[in-house]
Structure formats: C-alpha cells, structure tokens
Design a protein around this nucleic acid. Structure first.
Length: 572
DNA sequence: GCCGTTTTCGGCCCGACTGTTTTCAGTCG
C-alpha cells in the first residue's frame, strides 16, 4: 500500500523543512502524513476513482500535497523530496533519538561539523568539537555523549504488559511516601497502547517537595534526567524513563488529560477550546483569566460541550468530533466478554495445564465457555500438533468433562496451520466434527504480498475454517507483520463468513488497533488469549484494550455472544 | 501548506526546563 510510504515521505519532509527553520509547513506536512496513515482505503484507489479532487478530500491535504501524492502514484517518486534529501543527507530520526538534539541543533551540527548520523556525532563529541560551537557548551557535549550511549543501547518501547508490572510497582512505592493523595499512571500506558515508551505518573499532593524527594530516592540505581519543583524525570537502570508530576486537586483533571495525550488529541482539544473562546492547558480550562474547569476530566470535556472520551480513543482520529456530537461508541468492556476463543492445554507440546484446570480458571473469570484450540496438524513439528486420532480422543475427553462441569462449557476446537499453498493442515473429516476451527500461518512468512493474500483467502474458503488466528503473524519487536492486501482479505472474510481474531498475547496484539478499526462492522471479530497455561487466560484484558482502541462495541465481538447464540452462529 | 459556525487572508497548542545567555532559543512532553 502506498499510504504508508507517502506518509513516511511527508514526515521526513516535515523534519527537513523544520531543520531549515521553515515555519508552519512542517505541521502541515505532518498533519497530512497522519491522516494518510490512518486511511483505511488504499490511496492509489482513492486517486484512481476520484483523481486530484478526491485526494483533496483527505483532511490536511490541499492543492500542493495532492499534487505530490499524484506524482508519487504515477511515477513512484516525489522530486521535491529527493531534492531536499540530497541537500540534507542527515539521519534526523537517529539524531533525534539522542536527548537534547532537535532539528535546529541537528542543522547546526551538520552545517558546521558535518554531523550526519550517530557515528559522526559521536566523533565530533569525543573530539571536543561540539563544546566550541556558540550556543553549545561543555554540558551540551556531555549530555550528547550520555544520550548517545542510550540511543545505541537500543532500549525502545516495552510491551504493555511489562509496563503494567512496572507501573504497579512504582505506584506501590509512591504510596509508601504518604504525601500522595492520588496516583495515576497516564501517557500511552493509560491509552492502552500496545507498547509504551516511558511512564508518566501524576500525583495529587499538597506536598510536592515531599513527593519529589521520595521519588528521586526510590531507585538507587537510577539517574536523574531532570529535576524540578513539581516535575522530575529519572532513568531506571533498565533504561526506562519515568516522569513524575505533582498537581493540586483543582488542576488534577486537566493535568491527567494533558499527560494522557496523545499529543495529537491534546492539540485537537486545545484548538477546539480556542474556537470556543477558551484556553486549555494542564492547569485547567480558562475563559479569559477565569478558570472554568480542571478538577476532573469529565468537567473539562463537559464545559467544551463534549462527552468524556475514553483514553483508548484519544488519538485525534475522529473521537473529538464524535464526542462533540455525543456519538462516541459504547466501547466493549472486559466483563462483557463471555468466553475465550483461543487457548492451549497440555495436549499441545508447547503448553501446560489440564483441560479441567483451564475450565476452573475460566470459571473463576465468570466465563460461560472456553474454546480448547490446541495445535493441530503435522506442519509445526516443534509443538507436536494433534492428528485426527488424538483430536477425537480430546473431543471425547471434553464431552466427558462437560457432563461433569457446571456453569462452564468447553468447546471442541483446534488451531491448525495454513500451509504455504493455502491448504489446511488437517483433513475435512475431522474439521467438520469440531465446534470451531482456527487457522493461522506458522511458516513461510516472507512470501510476496500477493501470495500471502491469496494464501489467507484460500484458507478462508475452506468451509470448515471459522476464524483466522493472529492474522498478520507479527511479533512485536522481532517479526514484522505479513505483507498482504488487507482490504481484499476483509472482502473475502465477509464473503466466506470467516472471522478474524484479535489475539491478546502482549507480544502479538494481532490484529492491531488500526486493522481492527477497518475490520469492525464488516466482519465479526473474536478475542483469543492464545494462552499456553491457565493463568494466561488473564491476558484477555490486553485484547479488550486493543478492541477498544479499534472503536469496538460488544456487538463487534463474537465472544460477547451468549453460548446459545454462538452455537447458532457456528452451527454446532 | 492548510484551513474557515467570528476569517479566502492571517492565523497556525501550551508551558516548563535547560543551558546558554546577559533576556532567550531550543527542546520536550
């Protein structure tokens, strides 16, 4: 899809324009890039249907950028971009990752010292050349050197689950201080983003000094990045940055809103406030000098004529408009999920836990049903996939347990493999007798996009396949998503009545929230914890967050159906 | 370069901290 490529070009152009000190254009390019990235339709097909006029319908795209998009679609390149790139051969992304270096400083380092990337930056700093530039000094050089160490260490964003563990530890330690009346973890963690870069912690307290002192002494191995009266940042020995801010009660709501973000949502909200003759900051909503809201988030949104927006939606992708029209979706809740549609037992080679143990755990989560979907078929040898004979044995065991168990029903399923040519790894003779069949790709990840698309579609065309599990196959931080035409996959899913999974494993989060958003309303989505031990059934909460980030209501989610409706739907 | 329930021209988000300054620009969130 050209969307991603064009967005990347515009983002890079924005950086290069900023580097030249150009005003306002960078923002225009970034706005356009963001809205192009969030389009669900392929931009080339928008263009082929409606030409330049259709491109200009995209928010943030005007005459000039529409022409650049047209040029890219027709020729595969944008001349003004290539020209700029030649003029400023600087790896701004890498340099920007070093704290303290922004576009302006990067420009001066390039012009005066020839710094283009981390390597040339390190050399200039070690040679003591940076301290000699006017506007820079010894401290700047020192800061760059320590920032370089961090940038090269490759500590990026951590998975949400890991952030959650750290967040509760931090909150627990802060509570001990005694001066904190309320503690909230904000930032992308609160928005339920699949990965979290750093932790933003807000504390309500009338004793900021006490809180700060306590905070700075909590982790002996950490280093202080910034220290102020009401805000400080530290870097833990693990490399994770933690920001702490202290606010009073009358500003806590606006502060929480502000530090929950996203940045784009905040910018949108501030613009909206201005359009209503007000001003919004972390200290409150102001009409002239008079503060009209700030104590709670709800109060601020309400004064702006809007409904409260769940943090998961705060990406400025339509939620501000919807909240103004009181038409936000009623997002699915964890307790509306009536069962889990993907889990493994000790029958699979790679999982632990008996069927009964899983059932007990599911019961404790108030589920009505649990789909047992162990690996089936010979392809993935390492997990010892079940063959037809073993599956029949497991089905009999499930039937026996169901007669004994009360309040919970185990469903007879399998997670089988989509072979490289799109065939299914188990014969129809067993597939037709199972309640629900999941199929997923476990091999040959680097086929060309057309092949992958066809492969998934032909799996969906098998009438016994009910759900495609972890459809893009990505592993966050280690394996990129399968390249496919997602629009075509959606059409085929709709045509064949196949569902797509929202896999809840923190390392997968697959489908991701953008895919979920474009699939919602077209095909039913299923939540699967993909747990490999009974305790992993809890991972459902991460999938629910992702579904919420994709604007899903309970109607969009298969496992919000009661068992009898699920039976009807799948005919078992 | 984009955009318009006060504008087709004149705006474009806000505040704190840092390091370098001798009153402020750049960076960050």
């Amino acid at each position: 899809m050209a969307n991603r490529e064009i967005a990347r070009i515009f983002l890079e152009m924005a950086d290069m324009l900023e580097l030249q000190g150009v005003q306002f254009k960078p923002r225009a390019y970034r706005n356009a890039a963001l809205s192009i990235e969030s389009l669900s339709e392929d931009i080339s097909s928008i263009y082929s249907k409606g030409g330049l006029a259709a491109l200009r319908e995209i928010p943030g795209v005007g005459e000039s950028l529409a022409k650049k998009i047209e040029e890219f679609i027709r020729t595969g390149e944008v001349k003004s971009y290539l020209k700029m790139k030649k003029e400023f051969p600087v790896d701004l992304e890498a340099l920007g990752a070093v704290g303290g270096i922004g576009p302006k400083k990067a420009m001066r380092l390039y012009r005066e010292l020839g710094v283009m990337d981390l390597g040339t930056l390190e050399k200039a700093a070690k040679d003591g050349k940076i301290r000699k530039l006017s506007g820079f000094g010894e401290k700047s050089e020192q800061k760059i050197l320590s920032g370089l160490g961090f940038a090269k260490s490759g500590i990026g964003r951590m998975p949400l689950a890991e952030a959650g563990a750290l967040a509760s530890e931090l909150v627990h330690m802060l509570e001990k201080c005694g001066a904190a009346e309320k503690i909230e973890v904000a930032g992308s963690y609160r928005r339920g983003k699949e990965t979290v870069g750093d932790l933003d912690i807000l504390v309500l307290s009338s004793n900021p000094e006490g809180v700060m002192k306590h905070f700075l002494s909590m982790y002996p191995g950490s280093s202080t990045i910034m220290k102020g009266g009401k805000r400080s940042s530290i870097r833990l020995s693990s490399g994770i940055q933690v920001d702490l801010r202290v606010f009073s009660a009358d500003e806590f709501g606006s502060a929480l809103m502000y530090f929950t973000g996203s940045k784009e949502h905040n910018v949108g909200m501030r613009k909206l406030a201005i359009s209503k003759g007000m001003k919004l900051s972390e200290y409150g909503l102001f009409s002239g000098k008079k503060k009209v809201a700030g104590r709670t988030e709800g109060e601020v949104y309400k004064k702006l004529g809007m409904d409260w927006i769940p943090p998961e939606l705060r990406e400025n992708s339509g939620e501000i408009e919807a909240a103004g029209k009181h038409s936000l979706p009623k997002l699915v809740l964890h307790n509306e999920v009536r069962g889990d549609l993907h889990c493994h037992s000790e029958w699979s080679g790679d999982a632990s836990g008996s069927l009964e143990g899983l059932a007990k755990m599911a019961q404790s989560l108030n589920y009505e049903y649990l789909l047992i979907s162990d690996h089936g078929g010979p392809e993935v040898r390492i997990v010892n996939g079940l063959d037809e004979k073993k599956l029949r044995k497991q089905m009999a065991e499930i039937d026996r347990l169901n007669r004994k168990l009360e309040g919970i029903t185990l469903l007879r399923g399998v997670e089988t493999n989509i072979l490289k040519d799109g065939r299914i790894d188990l014969p129809d003779s067993i597939l037709r007798d199972l309640d629900i069949v999941l199929a997923s790709i476990h091999s040959n990840f680097s086929q060309p996009p057309q092949t992958i698309t066809k492969r998934i579609i032909s799996a969906m065309e098998n009438e016994h396949v009910d759900i495609i599990a972890h459809p893009t196959g990505r592993l966050i931080g280690s394996r990129p998503p399968l390249q496919m035409d997602f629009g075509e996959v959606l059409d085929a899913a709709k045509r064949t009545g196949t569902s797509l999974e929202i896999n809840c494993q923190p390392g997968r989060m697959d489908l991701d929230s953008q895919h979920i958003f474009s699939a919602k309303g077209k095909v039913p989505l299923s939540l699967g914890s993909d747990s490999h031990s009974p305790s992993q059934l809890h991972l459902m909460k991460f999938g629910v967050l992702n579904a919420r980030r994709g604007w899903c209501t309970k109607k969009d989610i298969l496992n919000c159906l009661p068992l009898k409706d699920l039976r009807k739907k799948f005919g078992f």
